[in-house]
Design a protein around this nucleic acid. Structure first.
Length: 493
RNA sequence: GGCGACAUAGCCAAGUGGUAAGGCCGAGGUCUGCAAAACCUCUAUCCCCAGUCCGAUUCUGGGUGUCGCCUCCA
């Protein structure tokens, strides 16, 4: 049973899929007019974890995320640079995919664009005009009439009177009500424009998401999400347009999920405030999976303060889990190479030494799922990974010390523990880009073996000065050596 | 002005009507030639006041503080 905090009801609700065993999700994507900052990336990582979890629970997931590629800011950027608007959108869509790839975000099933959905948008506006929810002006603009919609404001829970109408909304005498918003904007010279029943023009903001979500997910779908700043006016307006056009207040998204903001000095990161950090720049200092781990270590609805220190802490924590992950794989490798698995049993080693560990792992996996079931509480879920890591590392230490060997029943138990830990890791989306440094590993492996052998000879002769110099110099070069009872390990730090 | 959220150890961060997960940092210890890694041990009565209750950090009211939305914004 999965519970989700629904912004519409402001409470946790039991998730009931519209179609058994299936989940449909629409997440508001980006307007490709510049590079994404870390705050922009948060919803996509959040939804990536949610969809991964649903998939692991056996749901068939359909995930749609749009590009709003027709927009004032895009046109402004194109004019500023003296290039076509498509050059701007192509460039930043490409950049978006690069960044998401680095953060290990799985691709959506569909990436609709406004420019490719114009007929559907026009049809939707026509319906709204016909039903009396929208009106056309002489210049070709079409506005949505909030007064015609009795339930307008239900998501953000606000009333027109409360909104200081006119104070911060652009005054426009042509509108029937100050809160009315544009569905269609009449073309101005030099702007992208399409033919419509109201003359040449382009869609306003909001209508495109209604059209795209309805087109690719149907009149009813399970989830709609994005950053909390989209609650009003964007999602409010999407609901208004969609439900009035469809004539069904139960249509459109069933659950509204909004993530909290990333803050800098406790204040919301935003492009307009200028206090933002591009994902691209953070990735120059930290691996993508570390940045991702940093994001999911906190519950998605909580604010997340960003500074270099907290990301560095996340890196240390990430490395701790990675060590356990590597230790498990080392054990599994040992098991796979162990001839004992192929038949005979060692009478001295039949007693289970991994029994406690596998029991703990199964219990923690259940706890992990419970946490995820409770509104996708990744912070709690991850804490169980740390608990498992502790005992895995303890077992691994005993193995290195020669105290135990994962044989017989224990071999299977360790493989199960590894499976569980990997399962948890892949749900939050880490330890999947492990091949990063392995590209030229063959040569490096050979070189390291030579160096380590020389150092081992020095150690045998108690020539500590040479042994330590090799270790220190390697450390300075970014390679850490660890002497264990059985072998010398090295890793690029 | 309207609406809303949050306030937990040095830092980050979960959570519950019955005296509080996890991570970072720090201290001590085991192991090691030394180190690293790993493991063990130690570090909070949950912003303030009042109320409800046998009992509140968790519920209610008030206060203080911080932040958000109401304009583009993830």
């Amino acid at each position: 049973m999965i519970q989700v905090f629904n912004t519409m009801s402001r409470s946790k609700e039991i998730f009931k899929p519209l179609k058994a065993g299936e989940v449909s999700i629409y997440c508001c994507g980006v307007t490709p007019y510049n590079k994404p900052h870390i705050g922009n990336a948060r919803p996509f990582v959040t939804w990536d974890v949610i969809r991964r979890y649903f998939a692991r629970q056996g749901y068939k997931v359909r995930y749609v995320q749009n590009f709003t590629d027709v927009d004032d800011k895009i046109i402004a950027a194109a004019n500023r640079e003296g290039v076509s608007w498509t050059e701007i959108t192509d460039r930043y869509i490409r950049n978006y995919f690069q960044v998401m790839d680095a953060l290990n975000v799985q691709p959506a099933d569909v990436y609709p664009k406004v420019s490719e959905t114009i007929p559907d948008i026009i049809a939707l506006i026509e319906t709204l005009v016909e039903k009396g929810f929208a009106y056309k002006l002489d210049n070709g603009d079409v506005f949505y009439s909030v007064e015609a919609d009795k339930s307008y404001g239900k998501l953000s829970r606000r009333k027109f009177e409360d909104m200081q109408a006119g104070a911060r909304v652009e005054v426009d005498d042509r509108k029937r009500h100050p809160m009315d918003f544009a569905l269609w904007k009449a073309a101005k010279p030099g702007e992208p424009a399409w033919d419509s029943p109201w003359g040449k023009g382009r869609p306003g903001w909001h209508i495109e998401c209604s059209a795209m979500s309805l087109k690719y997910l149907g009149e009813k779908f399970d989830f709609h999400g994005g950053g909390a700043d989209l609650i009003f006016p964007h999602h409010e307006n999407e609901i208004a347009q969609s439900q009035c056009a469809l004539g069904d207040e139960h249509s459109f998204a069933q659950y509204w999920v909004h993530n909290g903001f990333i803050t800098v000095n406790a204040e919301k990161m935003s492009k307009s405030a200028g206090n933002f950090f591009l994902v691209e720049d953070i990735l120059k200092k930290f691996p993508g999976e570390v940045v991702r781990f940093f994001l999911v270590q906190t519950h998605y609805r909580s604010p997340l303060e960003l500074n270099e220190n907290v990301v560095r802490e996340a890196q240390v924590a990430y490395n701790r889990l990675k060590t356990a992950y590597d230790n498990l794989h080392e054990l599994v490798k040992q098991i796979e190479e162990d001839k004992f698995l192929k038949g005979k049993k060692d009478p001295m080693l039949t007693m289970s030494q991994a029994g406690g560990l596998v029991e703990l792992a199964e219990r923690l996996l259940a706890a992990f799922d419970d946490a995820m079931n409770d509104d996708f509480n990744t912070a709690l879920a991850i804490s169980y990974m740390f608990e498992l890591a502790r005992d895995v590392n303890a077992y691994h230490s005993d193995y290195l010390a020669g105290k135990i060997l994962p044989r017989g029943t224990d071999a299977y138990m360790i493989m199960r523990v590894s499976e569980i830990f990997t399962d948890m890791a892949s749900t939050i989306g880490i330890f999947e880009n492990v091949e990063d440094t392995a590209a030229d590993s063959e040569l490096v492996d050979k070189l390291m073996k030579i160096i380590v052998d020389i150092r081992q000879d020095a150690r045998k002769n108690k020539n500590w000065a040479v042994a330590d110099k090799i270790r220190d110099d390697l450390k300075a070069a970014g390679i850490a050596l660890e002497d264990t009872p059985q072998c010398v390990k090295w890793k690029i730090s």
